[in-house]
Every structure is written in C-alpha cells, then in structure tokens.
Amino acid sequence: MKIAFLADPLSTFKIYKDSTFAMMREAARRGHAVYAFEQRDMVLEEGVVTAWVTRIHLTGEPDAWYRPEPAETVKLSEFDAVIERKDPPFDMEYVYGTYLLELAERQGARVFNRPSAIRDHNEKLSIGQFSQFTSPTLVSSNPAMLRAFHEKHGDVILKPLDGMGGAGIFRVRDDGMNLGSVIETLTDNGKRTIMAQKFIPAIVKGDKRVLVIDGKPVPFALARIPQGNEVRGNLAAGGIGVAQPLTERDREIAETLGPVLAERGLLLVGLDVIGDFLTEVNVTSPTCFQEITDQTGFDVAAMFIDAVEQQSRKAAQKES
C-alpha cells in the first residue's frame, strides 16, 4: 500500500511520543510505502487535487529518524490511504484543507478521518450529541447565563470551543473569584461562544483518553493526571500519563459512541472521560498511542494500521 500522512512538519516530531510517528513506523514495518506532506502542499488545479509529497524511509535513528526521497507532485487519489494528522488550531486554513481533501475524496482518494466528519464534529460541542454521558454543561456567549450557571453549580470549568492541549481552561470555585474577568476574557465581552461545565472532582485521578479505532475501543486508557495545583491533566500542561484498563463506564461510553462515529467516517477518535463523564470527542489528531503501548504492551499503532488496511480493502472492493 501507498500511505500518505498529512501532518505538521516532520522536523517538529518528538518521535519518542508522537502517535503519527508510531503509525508511520508500523506501516513501514509491514512494507507499506510511507509518504508525508503538509497542508500547504495541497493544490487544486484544473479540478484535480494534488500534493507535493515526499516518500520517507525510517532509519531507526533517534535524531535523523527519516531519509527523504525527492519530493514530487502526486494526485491524492493515487494513494491507497491518506491519513489526516494535522494538529489544531482548527482555524479557517484547517477548514480549507478539509475542503480540498473532500474534493480529493470525490476523485477517488480514501481519507481517514473523513474531512466532512472532522468539520462536523467540534471537539467540545460534539458531546452535546451524547448528553446522557456528560456533566451539566452550558454553551453560550451570554455573560448573564454563564453567571447563572456558576451560581447554580458553584464550582465550574470555563473553556473556549477551539482550544487544544488545555489552553484557555479556567476553574472558578464557589467564591466566584475572578468570574467576571474570566467570562469577559473568554467571551471577548459577549462576542465569542464558550463552554461551561460543572467541575468534576474525579479529575484528581486523571483526564482519561479513551481511543476508539473503527468503532472499537482500545482496551487501555491513558489517565492524564494533573500535577501540583494544576486543574488540567493535559500532557501539554504538565500532566503525567498513566495507562490503565478501561472501566465499565469507559467501555460503555466507547461502545455506545464508537459505532456511531465510525459510521460517520471517523476511523480514529479520542474520547476524553473524567470520572464517569464524557468531556470531549477528539477527531483531528488523537494521540497517546506510544504512552499506552509503552506501559501496557498493547500495540495501538498495529490496531490502527489493521483498520486502515481493512477500510482500504473494502473501498477497493466497492470500486472494482
């Protein structure tokens, strides 16, 4: 198979923990040809979507970890699979990228995750489709409604709808200290929609990343545990990742959402679960592959490449 990865610059990869690298390594181990390109490398010309792609060979070295061949322009439809692994921010450039990938799909490209599904699933707002699993939540730009939500629930989390890595998350306790300032800042004085959620005390045991691949849960989650006085468990915010078996509740959430999201074209999803509550549905570039594998021995990348191979075969059979 020829597999192309749409990712951030390869020079930015931290290969000891990067999930995209783990995918590439497993694909290469199986003998697949691995290619890489960035979002800016895509072009629509005369109705055809191409990209300036580079075939790479993994060296096994920690620093110069890949050897590139000369870049070439290739139709995205010529690949057996295109793996969308561009990290947020989910800005308009990201959206334009999904439009180009969607056009490429119409020309025969097999893109995972499906571009339209990525656009349709805001990673914060998507939990509203599964409210049976969420803590009390309000999405609004109205300062009065946000204040009333805090008054009702006392201890709340407020966060932007387009953040990543824990950026912009605030906790306001019962005393309401700095509530007005936080609301003004996050909503830009009522002009930007944000999310408020009742604080979940179980965060002290970790913000669990539950990976779901082709509708099926990985049997281990990575609990990202806040350190010190930090309320955020995100690894980017200093959290410590501890792999652990799924709880019954984790599995219930994953097995309920998994088939629904897979049917929509989301091959890989990262569910964030705190205690018994779903807090986010990550669809852009879910991570934690290597941390789970290193700590448990369960090969997450192998499960993912299995799914890519299976979906590519199914698509090829439909086309033949």
Rank of each mutant, 00 (worst) to 15 (best):
K2R: 14
L10F: 10
S11K: 11
I15H: 07
Y16K: 12
Y16A: 13
D18F: 02
D18I: 12
T20G: 02
A22Y: 05
R25V: 04
A28F: 06
A28Q: 05
A28T: 02
H32C: 07
A33G: 09
A33D: 10
R40G: 00
R40M: 04
R40Q: 11
D41S: 13
V43F: 02
L44A: 12
E45I: 07
W52T: 03
T54V: 12
I56S: 00
T59Y: 08
G60Q: 13
P62C: 00
D63I: 14
D63F: 13
D63L: 13
P68S: 00
P70D: 02
P70A: 10
K75R: 15
L76A: 01
S77Y: 00
D80V: 01
D80Q: 00
V82F: 04
R85P: 01
D87K: 12
P88K: 06
P88W: 08
M92D: 02
E93D: 15
T98Q: 06
T98R: 01
E102C: 01
E105C: 12
R106W: 03
R106S: 04
R106D: 04
A109S: 02
R110H: 13
V111C: 02
V111Y: 10
F112W: 09
P115G: 10
R119L: 13
E123S: 07
L125H: 07
S131R: 14
S135H: 02
P136K: 12
P136S: 00
T137F: 11
V139F: 14
L146W: 12
L146M: 10
R147K: 15
H150Q: 14
H150W: 14
K152R: 14
D155P: 07
V156M: 01
D162P: 04
G165Q: 07
G165M: 12
G168S: 07
G168Y: 11
I169K: 08
I169E: 01
G180L: 10
V182M: 03
I183S: 06
L186Y: 11
L186D: 06
K191R: 15
K191E: 15
R192C: 09
Q197T: 03
F199C: 04
P201F: 02
P201W: 06
I203S: 09
G206P: 08
D207V: 05
V212Q: 05
V218F: 06
P219L: 15
F220R: 13
F220E: 03
A221N: 00
A221M: 11
A223F: 11
P226F: 13
P226L: 14
G228V: 05
E230S: 15
G233K: 14
L235C: 06
A236Y: 09
A237P: 06
G238E: 04
G238V: 00
A243W: 02
Q244D: 07
Q244I: 11
R249V: 15
R251G: 00
E255T: 15
L257M: 06
G258T: 08
P259L: 08
A262V: 11
E263A: 15
E263M: 14
R264A: 15
R264W: 01
G265V: 11
L266M: 03
L271T: 06
D276K: 10
F277M: 12
L278Q: 05
N282V: 09
S285F: 08
C288F: 12
E291A: 15
T293Y: 13
Q295S: 07
G297Q: 13
D299Q: 10
M303N: 08
I305M: 11
E309Y: 05
S312T: 15
K314I: 15
K314E: 01
A316N: 08
